Amino acid sequence: TLFFTEEDKYGLYSNLLFKYFLAEGVVCGHDLFVASAKEHPDNILKELPAPLLDDTYRNELGEEATAVKSKDFQDSMKIAWRYQNLPKMEVNRPTSAKFGHYYDVSKTISPELFQSIKWHCFYLPEELSSQPKMKSCNMNSAYTRLLQSIQRIIYQEGFDGSDPQKKQRNILRIGIQSLGSMLWGDDICSSETPEDTHSLTKFLYVLRGLLRKSLSACIITLPAHLIQNKAIMERVTNLSDTVVGLESFIGSERETNPLYKDYHGLVHVHQIPRLNSLICDVSDTKDLAFRLKRKLFTIERLHLPPDLSDTVSRASKQDLAESAKLLSSGCGAMAIGKKHLDF
Results as ranks from 00 to 15, higher is better:
H225W: 07
W184L: 00
P223N: 03
E126W: 06
F159A: 01
Q131V: 13
L124F: 08
S130W: 03
I154Q: 00
A65H: 09
H268C: 06
T221R: 00
I150F: 00
R314E: 14
H268P: 01
I188P: 03
Y143I: 03
P305E: 02
V269E: 02
D342W: 12
L210M: 10
L222P: 00
L12G: 09
Q228N: 06
T221Q: 00
L211A: 05
P125Q: 03
E247A: 10
L172V: 03
L45H: 08
T298A: 12
D163H: 00
M334Y: 03
F159G: 00
K135S: 15
H120Y: 12
D104I: 07
L113V: 14
S214C: 05
Y263P: 10
C331I: 13
S277K: 06
A97R: 12
G11I: 08
I220K: 02
S190L: 13
A65L: 11
I176E: 02
S216Y: 00
K9C: 11
Q115F: 07
I272N: 12
Q115R: 13
G332F: 06
V243K: 03
F249C: 05
S106K: 06
I219Q: 06
T108C: 09
Q177A: 13
A65I: 15
S149W: 01
L124P: 12
N140H: 02
K98W: 11
L266P: 04
G100N: 01
V26A: 09
Y263C: 08
D287G: 09
S309K: 05
Q131N: 13
S178G: 05
Y102E: 15
A333H: 14
K71Y: 06
R93M: 08
D284F: 05
P194D: 04
C137A: 14
M233H: 03
A65W: 06
S316A: 09
K230F: 04
F33T: 07
D163W: 01
S240K: 01
F99E: 14
Q168I: 08
H30G: 02
E127W: 09
L124S: 11
P164G: 04
I227V: 15
A23F: 02
V105D: 11
E322K: 11
M182F: 06
S316C: 10
K78N: 15
F4A: 03
D31P: 07
I188E: 05
